[in-house]
Amino acid sequence: MPETKKKLLEVKGLTMDFGGLRAVDAVSLEVSTGEIVALIGPNGAGKTTFFNCVTGIYNPTKGEVLVHPPEKKTQRINGFKPNRVTTIGMARTFQNIRLFHNMTVLENVMIGRHCRTTTSIVGAIMRGASTKRQEQETIEKSYELLKKVGLVNFADEFAKNLPYGAQRRLEIARAMATDPFLLLLDEPAAGMNPQETKALDELIVRIRDTEKIAILLIEHDMKLVMNISERIYVMEYGKEIAQGTPMDIRSNPRVIEAYLGEEADA
């Protein structure tokens, strides 16, 4: 790839304590432009906590979370509110789907446009030309996104009525509506059947290639992870135990131990 890679997200020594429990212990991670990076590890390793620290839901106890938005100044975003993190350009999805169930599919995506539009209460009441234009743009853009994830036929359906796999894709569309440069996906393939996983696999690669959005994902589906990610970080008990290309990770004894339990040498 001739394009020079540029760092987007840089996490240094991130630590998160809950009382006496250290859920994440000095984890460092980097994501650059055009990359798909995976974060894996056994259940309870602290992956989702790590995500929550990066996206502002928790305020990390120690460490640095630095973002380098393209064409903008680097920012240290420790302790930023989630909405500010999203506005900077990092959007996420959730492990246990968090859609707005009693809103239509289209409206769900339109919420993602909230931070990129500016209509105020007064503007909404007056409904002037610029408000109307913004509203129409929001609708168009949301339709486009629904088309990209293949949900355009469900646009006026309530989100709660969608099948499971479609709900996951809707979450991705909603996150993409915020115009991110980095998408954080928390177990996007959880609960999907093989066909759906394959479609998701293609969708993620397509997002990276055509939308130029870098991706950081947590995933348990090893096939998906090995297929699409350039680099993999492995966590266990809150610590980072390995990092590298899929090939490295596959043969790393520490990782095998973490996943299969200690070898029967005792």
Binding site: N83, L99, I111
Partner: peptide, 26 residues
Amino acid sequence: RLKDSRIGRAWMALREDEIACVAMGV
């Protein structure tokens, strides 16, 4: 007018799921 606007949608999203709403930049 407010109900069918950016503001009204944000209110509804807040009602549906606060964490998701904030994570989507509201």
